[in-house]
Design a protein around this nucleic acid. Sequence first.
DNA 1: GCGCTTCTCACCCATTCGGGCGATGGCGCG
DNA 2: CGCGCCATCGCCCGAATGGGTGAGAAGCGC
Lengths: 140, 140
Amino acid sequence: MTRAMLSTVIVWALVLAAAAFALQWLEFQYLAMAFSREIYIAIIAVAFAGGGVWVGWRLSSRPRSGFQRNDAAIAALGLTRQELRALDLVADGQSNKEMARTLGVAPNTVKTHLANLFAKLEVGRRTQALAKARELALIP
Amino acid sequence: MTRAMLSTVIVWALVLAAAAFALQWLEFQYLAMAFSREIYIAIIAVAFAGGGVWVGWRLSSRPRSGFQRNDAAIAALGLTRQELRALDLVADGQSNKEMARTLGVAPNTVKTHLANLFAKLEVGRRTQALAKARELALIP
DNA sequence: GCGCTTCTCACCCATTCGGGCGATGGCGCG
DNA sequence: CGCGCCATCGCCCGAATGGGTGAGAAGCGC
């Protein structure tokens, strides 16, 4: 977040500096003769407006990809690896039998993991577990 | 989404037009005499860059505050009001009986709505429905 | 070794859920 | 007015789920 913002701003600042020199040079070389002053201004305005849009977009669209588990909550609840894996599979919409196949264990084992998970989350259904897990940022 | 983008763009376009006139006027009144050409250019650049940042920020920062349903998908799938309400309650973790109480209908009615919802989503379980509905941005 | 946790699996039983079927009433549309 | 869609509700039945209990094996720390 902070890193992305900084890098974005720095990149933009460098582009600005480069553009300043380039424009300074171009101004006296070609543009002053080729275009009228208004068109030159318009080019500047459009270029900087476009750059601004880019900067603003990057500055506010970082949460798109990032999600990280609430490890504090996991520790506080005492959730184990298998319980978390089962939770992920529940969020994926799998049945107990499918989860057993995915995890390579018996369906009864999955049931046990889920029962423990439900107890720790203080819920009684998998859909409730999903709602609560999402509140706690245990799943995306 | 589309409305917000349009209004943002329109506002910016109006500001641009107003600024163009203002600059045109100011240019010959004060700035041409008070500042050098480079400073004038710099003011233009900063102003438009700032405006661009604002536009870019507004254009891409609506997932932060709100969530809005994918109405296009709802229409495409032909989901009805009750099916959507049932979907919300499923996401909330409620059982069929609780949903019946919430919606003020019989449990069998809830079952019917869910059965139709599952058929339209092409799923067979409520957890699958939740996963798919989240993919389609039908629920937060 | 001993206690602890974790993971594993089993059995039984009640509840919930999902599929399939049919049925009624309201409402808009041609 | 028939037709289609939506909402409502019922019944049956099989599958999935949840609760409770027990228990064995592996690993960890003291």
